[in-house]
């Protein structure tokens, strides 16, 4: 069991807005997270790129600034393998590399427009239909 963090912001959105710049400031752009990432090896466009350049771009994106295409390709490929977290030499100072990548990805979608939004408008109607296929009226009423 884990006790959850005490809130440090008024909402999740406010927290993410604050955390992006804070985590970017902790990042030294050493490239260790990129080197450790198993997804980076699966993206042809990332073959031979400089890890430090990619992570320098990570800092920019997390602050809401335009990032280089390699960084955008990398954050877009993030599957939350989490290997970057332990690879990061700044972890003990409070840098959660996976969260930094995630925020950078959100910025690339919402702020810099460098990644397309991947939204399935049918996702919720689909799971509700699955629910009605299988759940009893009582389950539908109590669980959802």
């Amino acid at each position: 069991m884990k006790s959850l963090q005490q809130p440090s912001a008024e909402s999740s959105q406010a927290y993410l807005a604050e955390a992006g710049s804070r985590l970017a400031d902790l990042c030294t752009a050493c490239g260790a997270c990129f080197d450790a990432c198993p997804m980076a090896r699966l993206v042809p466009a990332l073959a031979g790129v400089s890890p430090t350049s990619v992570t320098e771009g990570l800092r920019s994106l997390a602050r809401g600034e335009t990032g280089p295409v390699e960084t955008v390709a990398w954050v877009g490929a993030c599957a939350r393998s989490g290997v970057c977290v332990s690879a990061c030499p700044e972890r003990d100072k409070g840098l959660d590399a996976m969260l930094l990548v995630r925020i950078a990805k959100q910025r690339a979608i919402n702020d810099t427009g460098q990644l397309p939004a991947k939204h399935d408008a049918h996702a919720f109607p689909r799971v509700k239909t699955f629910a009605r296929l299988q759940l009893t009226d009582e389950e539908l009423d109590r669980w959802l």
Binding site: M1, K2, S3, L4, P7, A9, S12, Y15, A19
Partner: peptide
Amino acid sequence: HMSDIMSPGNATQFDIA
């Protein structure tokens, strides 16, 4: 998401496991 993003932006009165 609860651990990393929801709880830092919302006061929680529960733990998770």
